[in-house]
Each structure stands twice: as C-alpha cells, then as structure tokens.
C-alpha cells in the first residue's frame, strides 16, 4: 500500500486557495469592501496604492467572479462607479481566511 504523503492535507489546503482573493491587491480591496457598505472608484483607488489601470484590471477580475457588484451612475453630472461586495465575495473572503488560518496553524 502506497504511503500517504504526510503533507497531503496541507497540499490540499494550499491547492484549494481562491487565487482571485489571494492576490494581494484584490485581497486589500475585498477586505476594505468587506468592512463597509460601499465605496466609489476614487476612494478605493486612492487607498489601494495601485495605478489606475492596475486597479481597474483587478476590479474587473473581482466583478467577473461576482465577488463585487458595480453600480455606475451620474452624481452632479460626473460619472461615479460604486462598488459593493456581494454575498459570494463575503463567503469567498471568509473561506479564504479559514483556509489561511489552517495553513498558518501548521507553523506552530
């Protein structure tokens, strides 16, 4: 009988990590949205430390995964994009946090 790899469970955990959430910029953005109701492009971009193009790319990825809901409207005749985390986004971040806790617990 083949021996089970002692790292099997850890390998499973790391392989199963949500790479959409795991990316540092997206993790920061999703974390900010997790603790608030909503924020606009300007606030998130300003406090993410990313370039405009980079920020837009990450937000598109989050939107494609349905982790973030986007609402575009005009405020005082200026285009405004409001972002809000979805239930799927919240679950994804919660799951990510649990998996990371288990992985990091292996270090103790």
């Amino acid at each position: 009988m083949a021996e089970k790899n002692p790292l099997f469970e850890v390998l499973l955990l790391t392989a199963d990590i949500d790479k959409t959430v795991h990316e540092p910029a997206r993790l920061l953005i999703l974390s900010m949205l997790y603790v608030i109701d909503s924020a606009d492009f300007v606030f998130l971009h300003r406090h993410s430390g990313l370039t405009r193009g980079n920020f837009s790319t990450h937000m598109s990825k989050l939107e494609d995964e349905h982790y973030v809901k986007v609402n575009k409207k005009f405020v005082d005749k200026k285009p405004t994009t409001i972002y809000r985390i979805t239930d799927a986004g919240r679950s994804a971040l919660d799951n990510y946090r649990e998996k990371m806790k288990k992985i990091l617990a292996e270090l103790e």
Partner: peptide, 9 residues
C-alpha cells in the same frame, strides 16, 4: 477629495 464611502446602509 477622498472619494465616497458608506459604512452602513
């Protein structure tokens, strides 16, 4: 200046 943020509904 800092953008819009809403903490709760």
């Amino acid at each position: 200046r800092i953008g819009f943020i809403q903490f709760e509904a």
